[in-house]
Amino acid sequence: MDTRYEEPTTDDRAASLHLQELALFLSVHLDRTPGILWPEHDHPAFGARPGPAGLAGLADGLGRLTGLAVRTRPGLRSDSVPGSGSGHRLIHHTAGAVNWQLRDGSASDAAEPLRWRIRPGEVLYVPSHWTWHAELALGTRFVVTHLVPSADPPGTP
């Protein structure tokens, strides 16, 4: 049995700290209100072009910390159209600024939407019962993380 200690890499430490920030942020906002997080630590998966392995690692780590089923993918232009969906969303902006409009799906149509401009490095949380619309500029890139209750509670093998 090899018992040598291996120091975590800088990327591993940054990823771990970023995931802890997201989990803490979600513990405050989940199922309540939208929010914006300005993370202290960047996740290495959010490079110029997020790759599948990095995004899968982010989803797996966040799922372990929150007990939610997590799926992460690069954002698409279709994500900007007015809509809603099942589950919660975290939108990680990696390039370009985006104007987002969010509306509480349980509020009257007369209620004024929240309007936020999100910049690279910022994370937007959209609760499951809220609708959204985004104005994307050319060159805008973001990652969408879907969060839904897990079929298996935390700690289930």
Rank of each mutant, 00 (worst) to 15 (best):
E40C: 00
N99R: 08
G96D: 04
E135H: 11
Y5N: 10
S78K: 15
V144H: 04
A110G: 06
L30T: 03
G51S: 13
D104F: 00
G87A: 07
P74M: 02
R89K: 04
R64F: 10
G83Q: 02
A134E: 10
R4V: 12
P52Q: 14
D60S: 14
P39G: 06
L55C: 10
G61W: 04
L90H: 01
H133T: 00
R115Y: 15
W100E: 11
V28K: 12
H133M: 06
E21I: 03
A110N: 06
T33N: 12
L22V: 08
G61R: 07
F46A: 05
E6Y: 00
H88C: 10
A45E: 12
S16I: 01
A56R: 08
L136S: 01
W130L: 10
P113Q: 09
R64W: 09
P50N: 11
E7R: 02
H92L: 08
W130Y: 14
P157G: 12
P82R: 04
Y125L: 13
L102R: 02
A134G: 15
G63N: 12
V126L: 15
H93C: 09
A137D: 10
G155F: 04
R73H: 07
H41L: 07
W130G: 11
G121R: 06
L30M: 11
G75C: 05
S128C: 00
G96W: 04
T131Y: 05
V123K: 03
P82F: 03
G155I: 02
P153N: 10
S27E: 14
W130F: 09
G63P: 13
I118W: 00
D42A: 12
A48Q: 15
L58T: 01
P127A: 08
A97M: 14
R77I: 06
R89A: 03
F25W: 12
T3D: 10
L124I: 02
L76P: 10
T140W: 06
R119M: 01
P120A: 08
D79T: 03
R89N: 00
E6A: 12
S108Y: 10
M1L: 03
T3N: 10
T94N: 03
I118S: 04
A151D: 15
D2K: 05
